[in-house]
Design a protein around this nucleic acid. Structure first.
Lengths: 148, 148
DNA sequence: ATAATAGAAGATAAAAATATCTTTTTTACT
DNA sequence: AGTAAAAAAGATATTTTTATCTTCTATTAT
């Protein structure tokens, strides 16, 4: 569905939401180890997220990446847009440029409600909401370092 | 969502369901032109579908690709399996190997119901069903050569 | 000031997906 | 039999995605 890049980015974003704030930053190395993602690749992704102002960063000793309160209000959708772009969720499932509700492709009515609903959730739910939900539900999360 | 390869393959499959049978075969060249897909690439895909017995083919003059009645009963899911594999729809949205209903990833409960529902539709609906539905609904299909 | 730390930026490499080209095999038609 | 049509098979090329490596810059602590 999503690219590896985007999966890593979302996982990193959730990880940062749980483990960091202005006073507590974490370096790529630790994050990559905890999330079991390739270090250098994740570094690039975090740079991209940072340059797009989705996450915050600080250089030098005691520096690292973190989410401030504004960052934590970001939607998952912002991350997807930043890394993968919108095409994957907004475009036609069969890649037909002219496909839409009035002029549907053969699988449009199968796939369309799904895409709309996910899109809504991904747009409406902030990273913060997500983390809160996760904690409330008390479910075990398969994200290394966040087994609650 | 799907790879280009898989999109082309599904479109070709529907195209063949509409335009061919044992007595009427169509060559890759025409199909590629009609579907506006790259000729040689589509040829490879059709070969793959044929070798996996999802579609039928005949060599030589008046040969080409076609769907017999058995072929037309194939599900969209068979095509996806053949070209893209199952991982994309069966695996975790965030790529976590341990994610499942009991041990869900942070977006599992957002994504899971839809994956299940799409999967069911794709498994249950044959290409033939799809074509019938399309004809019944009388909707215009953005698939060149099948604007009804 | 300086050394160490950590992100930023840029260059490079490897793998996968996409796409094309060439040759071979099968078959129908004359 | 010979020829042309069309898929099958194999080799090659291009592009994108994934990933790594190296150098540069900013910051902190000593």
């Amino acid at each position: 569905m999503l690219s590896n890049a985007c999966k890593y980015a979302i996982r990193a974003m959730i990880y940062l939401a749980i483990h960091t704030d202005e006073t507590k930053k974490i370096g790529v190395k630790i994050i990559a180890e905890d999330l079991e993602t390739p270090y250098a690749f994740l570094a690039k992704l975090l740079q991209k997220l940072a340059s797009d102002k989705l996450i915050s960063s600080a250089k030098g000793p005691r520096g690292g990446f973190y989410l401030n309160d504004t960052d934590k209000k970001r939607a998952i959708w912002d991350v997807v847009k930043c890394i993968d772009g919108t095409e994957k969720f907004e475009g036609c499932f069969l890649g037909l440029s002219k496909c839409n509700d009035i002029n549907p492709c053969p699988v449009h009515h199968i796939v369309s409600p799904f895409k709309k609903s996910i899109l809504k959730d991904f747009r409406d739910k902030s990273i913060h909401d997500l983390v809160r939900e996760i904690k409330e539900n008390g479910t075990v999360i398969s994200l290394k370092g966040f087994d609650i």
